[in-house]
Every structure is written in structure tokens, then in C-alpha cells.
Design a protein around this nucleic acid. Sequence first.
DNA 1: CGCCAGTTTGACCAAGATCAACGCAAGTGG
DNA 2: CCACTTGCGTTGATCTTGGTCAAACTGGCG
Lengths: 233, 233
Amino acid sequence: MPEQVSTSGAANGFAPYSLVSISPARSRRSDPFVAFEQVGRVRRFARDEEIYGEGDPADAWFKVISGTVRICKFLADGRRYIAAFCDSGECFGLDDVGERVFSAEAVGAVTVTRYPRSATERLIDENPLLSRGLCEITLHDLAHAQIRMLRLGRMTASERVANFLLELSEQQDARRIIEVSMSRGDIADHLGLTIETVCRVLSAFKRDRLISIPGLHQIEVLDRAALEAVGET
Amino acid sequence: MPEQVSTSGAANGFAPYSLVSISPARSRRSDPFVAFEQVGRVRRFARDEEIYGEGDPADAWFKVISGTVRICKFLADGRRYIAAFCDSGECFGLDDVGERVFSAEAVGAVTVTRYPRSATERLIDENPLLSRGLCEITLHDLAHAQIRMLRLGRMTASERVANFLLELSEQQDARRIIEVSMSRGDIADHLGLTIETVCRVLSAFKRDRLISIPGLHQIEVLDRAALEAVGET
DNA sequence: CGCCAGTTTGACCAAGATCAACGCAAGTGG
DNA sequence: CCACTTGCGTTGATCTTGGTCAAACTGGCG
């Protein structure tokens, strides 16, 4: 997604969110947010390690420095849903107050910065502009969540996968070759499908020359128009 | 007795006014949100009337006074997804930047207050506290969107319907008889099901004595524990 | 009373899930 | 250095849930 970061008013109704230019996902920023860096501490996690779990106290938020984090929730019988993948530059854990509703896990090796809630609130009290920035992040998350609900609620398997690939592609600056850091199982649990269906759809896209799969974790977009025809909202 | 439960988030608008007491009786002088009331204008809409449409400029946000609003999006072939229902007390239309991504329609006759963006921005500049309150509301909304994604992505038809009924019930103060203002078709498009499936599930619940259906738009919860066993996350 | 939109029910169908092999590349240890 | 394991990923056969199509029912409302 291009930097559609509304500089002036968030037409959304609130200027506040637009004062800080944070592109939703992978944002490099240099604004008032640097204030937070003073209170952040770097943490590293190994593949599949839990960063926080459901029920933990929500006493901090995080920004991904490198790697990918998955935000997920388990049902009692083991079914898993992955609400989001956070790549470097993205923030997570800002939601939920009190205790965690979802958990956060490292997809591969991950480095994050951890910002304690108490220090964050102190900074915000000193500089209300920061609150607007955090708000903007949340708004973008909400916008993404809405598109994902549409995807889950009303799209077929092929449409979901195509739409997901396009989302990944945009996040990665529309490069031809998409880096897919997560496993097929992760993708399935994010799209509300099974591993097998994700595989079959990818194979079908490959057969139809929409994509090629040079490596297990790379996907090359061969025919973007066709992919959009399938997966565009 | 806090009559304003409004826990459900419109995935789209900032539905819940959790931080704000809207009810006149309890509205506190210190509540910064009352500032908005000065700039709001009341609008009425008839059943199925469009409040705003996809692509419209997002130059205002709304609060529902009475009735129910649905926030929805259409795919090219007519499939519809309803991201949220907003009941009285809830807000919507805050989330779009620039132009509307979803549209808002009146489920039945609806009265709303419309708050222009420009005036809202001015108020926030004068009182940064407003921004912080809105941030919390947004977070609350995001939390609801995440639960809905889980519902769409990993729950069966029965689980979705049960979970939805429980959500409605909580919104309405856990009264035994739930007022269901929207049609079966609206419910289906919200839960990612068909009208027929929604009907069948409701009939099954009725047959199994989990609920009774005294009127087309009322559902009585007969066995809450059983309903929770089916639909609780 | 009869129409009409919304709802309910039934019979059948298909998208995607489940179950089961099989492939394949990256370790691991003898 | 090569068998053996292990963890993903892919593919195929079959089954199930929920969708589709069709018809009957219901409750408002003129």
C-alpha cells in the first residue's frame, strides 16, 4: 500500500490521527514517536516462542524490529485463528486493556522493542500528540480488520488467497517476488481455511500462471491483473 | 444502573461509548465528550435509507440516537458483508479517512446525530483529552473486530449464531428476551452465512430448547449455559 | 381478504474439510 | 558420507457442512 497517509485531516473525522504520519503497517517514522524510543527495550524471541499469552497482563506494547509476529487465539478444541501478522516496523499489543485477549508468537526469529505501558502513559501525558499517533495506528489496524472480515465472511478460498497475496505484495512495496515468512498452516489459520486448501489454491494459481513459487517462502507474481481479478475487493 | 451497556463495538464506527456517559442522568459535567454535542445535528433516516455510501467523502461521524444502523460493503457481484450493527448510543463513521470504504444504512427508522469533521477537529485541538478518549474507544472497537474475525474464520454456523445471540444479549443487558432489530438476511450477511442456514440454526436451537422465538424480531434465551457451550469463544 | 415481503423447510449439490499417502529438503547420528 | 528421521508441503480420494434451488408458510397491511 502506497503512503496514503493523509497528512492533513483524517477524513475520518479526527485530525488527531493524521497529525502523525504513520503508515499502517511497516512504517518507518521519524516523528514525535522517537520519544518512545527512550523507554523501549529490545527483546529477542526464537521461532514459535510466545511473546505474550492470552490472559497475561497487558502492560506493554511492542514494535517489530525484524522478523514476523503472529497475533492469534485458540479455541478450546485447538482450532486457531491468526488475527494478524506483524512485520518489521509494525506495532502490536496496543489493543487489549487489562489482560491479553489474543497471544503473540514469533513466526521465525524475531527482534522487537518493548514499551511498558506506564512509561507510555507518562509520555502521553507530557505530549498529547503521541496519543494521536497511537490512535492512528489503531485506526489502520481497524481498517485492515474490516477488510479481513469481508474476506472471511464473503470470499471463496481462491479469493481469500489471492487477496492475501495482494495484501502481502503491497506491504512489500509491490515487488514481484513476495517473501512469505509464515508457514502454509499459518496462512490457513489466518484465512479460515485448511493447509490443504491453501496448497491446492496456490497450485492452481501456479498451474494457471498467475504466480510461480521459486522457494517455499517466496511467491512470484506473474500476472498481477489476473490475481486482482480474483482477489480484489 | 448504567443503562448504557454498549459493549459491542461496531467494527466500523466507534460503537461503544464506554468512556462516555451518554445517558443524560449520569452525564457528568467533567465529561469532555459533551463538548461534541454543541456541534452535532440530528438527522432522521427511513428503513434501508443510505446514511453514507462507499466512496462518499468521509466528512463527518455519527452517533445513533434510536434505531439500528448497519455498516456494510458490497462486492461487485452483489455479495454483501455487514461489518457491524450500531445500536443507540454507539458511534460510527469515525474510521474512514478521505472517503468511505463501507457504507452505512438504516436497518429500520433511525435517528442519529451528525458531527462534522471540521468542527470535531477544532474541538480536539482545544481539548486534547478528547483525542485520548476516542483512542480508547477505537481500541475497544478493534477488540470486537478481532473476535468477529475469529467467529468468521474458525467457527461453525451454529457457533456463529450462538455467539452472535450472546453478543446481542450482552448489549441488551443480558435480558432474557433479545430484541433482534435486523432481518435474517442481515444476520446472515454479518455472520458469513446464508439466510437459510441462519433459519435452520435458529430452528435447531428452538427445537433443542435453547431459545424460543416469540416474535420474528425477538428471541428468548431459555438455556444460556447451553448457548454459551455452543458459542462462547 | 388477499397480497407481498420476509421467513421457514426440504431436497439436492458443491466447496472445502478430512483422511491418507507421498515428496522433499534439512538435519542427525552412526 | 550416507541411512534415517523429522517437519513441511503437496496431491488424491472421500465425506460433510453449508450453499443453492424450490416451494410452502406467516404476518402485516392495504
